[in-house]
């Protein structure tokens, strides 16, 4: 935990926060994604919106994009989560549904306890998006 001396979060969090991956700029184009989910509120200080594109035959996730208003860990966890979903040609939906906040936090090299519940919202936004996708197809 040597990097804590210099920065309050891990080096991985910092990297994903300073150089976020997989976010969406502006509004999505018509048909660019199959569904989206949104969680959080102004009151709790974090809002995340997440879009998914699914291969209907294989149920693999072919594209994930996110937008986050929130603190460093909220941004970093969305960035990390989108990477996890799209690794190796995209994860299968059922498999992706099993990802927990703890899994994301571990990938990020740990998070302060008080940040754990409030700032990892990406998995919840994803579950909402899948729900919306399943309702439609």
């Amino acid at each position: 935990m040597a990097d804590v001396d210099k920065w309050i979060y891990s080096a991985v969090v910092k990297d994903h926060f300073m150089h976020p991956r997989g976010f969406l700029m502006g509004e999505p184009k018509e048909g660019e994604f199959d569904a989206h989910g949104e969680v959080g509120s102004f009151a709790c200080g974090d809002i995340i919106k997440l879009w998914i594109k699914i291969d209907k035959k294989t149920e693999r996730i072919t594209d994930v994009k996110w937008q986050t208003w929130g603190c460093a860990t909220a941004i970093a966890s969305a960035s990390m989560f989108s990477e996890m979903l799209t690794e190796n040609e995209g994860m299968n939906i059922d498999e992706a549904m099993k990802i927990t906040p703890k899994d994301i936090a571990e990938k990020l090299g740990g998070l302060p306890a008080r940040k754990f519940h409030c700032s990892i919202l990406a998995d919840k936004a994803f579950k909402k998006a899948v729900e919306a996708y399943r309702l439609r197809s």
Binding site: F17, M18, G45, D46, W69, G70, C71, A72, I75
Partner: peptide, 14 residues
């Protein structure tokens, strides 16, 4: 507006 303070603090710190 449209941004969250902690993120700004940490970017400015950098």
């Amino acid at each position: 507006l449209d941004v969250e303070g902690e993120s700004v603090v940490l970017y400015l710190d950098e």
